[in-house]
Design a protein around this nucleic acid. Structure first.
Lengths: 102, 102
DNA sequence: AAATTTTATTGTATTATTGCAATAATACAA
DNA sequence: TTGTATTATTGCAATAATACAATAAAATTT
């Protein structure tokens, strides 16, 4: 059917799967790493850094914003992106908990 | 196109994305957690535990085997599944490295 | 050998994802 | 206001993923 039966699983399992889905693309990994490295940047820099078309980057940024791992602030014509470190730590915690499953 | 341009990204980025893709389904999370909890079990037990049809479970198990996080050993009519703890630790390491990005 | 049990594979339908081109939207500059 | 720069959205095509029914495959049991 192509439709995940989320209702059969716990909130935690769905949350982890949702985050993992967003991390499941190398461009999105690369975007996170780039922003972490240079602390903050405008969208155009990401488009220059990642060899994909601007609309495609825009979609990936949207997915990353959806799970809150990055945030974009409009600054004139540009949008300044940075990692939300609180959310980043939350996500770390979600994975750590999973990996420490006893 | 629906076709990820993996050639544009590093091996590390692709590896992390590949693992994340496999974790990006709550049933696969649930399967890993279940096997970790009871140490080992046969396929039929997983089919009873997870409310999805047997062929669907079989596909999820195949994905998990593909990244090596679980292994299945044929035992008579059944297949005994367990987590490959070496690979499990590798995967932990891949995520830890990512989350420690400075 | 025939029936049974257990798991894997195939076929099919449906939905999701990825990517780019074209275009829209927004803000600043001239 | 017109133009320019930057980012977001839409439309479309191609591919991937999810799920179940049906069936196949392999080993055990009767």
């Amino acid at each position: 059917m192509g439709l995940t039966k989320t209702e059969n699983f716990t909130e935690e399992q769905n949350e982890l799967a949702d985050i993992a889905r967003v991390l499941a693309h190398p461009a999105r990994i690369a975007i996170i790493q780039y922003i972490l490295k240079i602390k903050q940047c405008i969208g155009g820099e990401i488009v220059e850094e990642i060899p994909l078309a601007q609309p495609t980057i825009s979609r990936h940024l949207k997915e990353l914003k959806n799970i809150g791992v990055i945030q974009g602030t409009v600054e004139g014509k540009s949008v300044c992106y940075c990692v939300d470190h609180n959310r980043w730590n939350d996500i770390k915690g979600v994975f750590n908990k999973f990996f420490e499953t006893k």
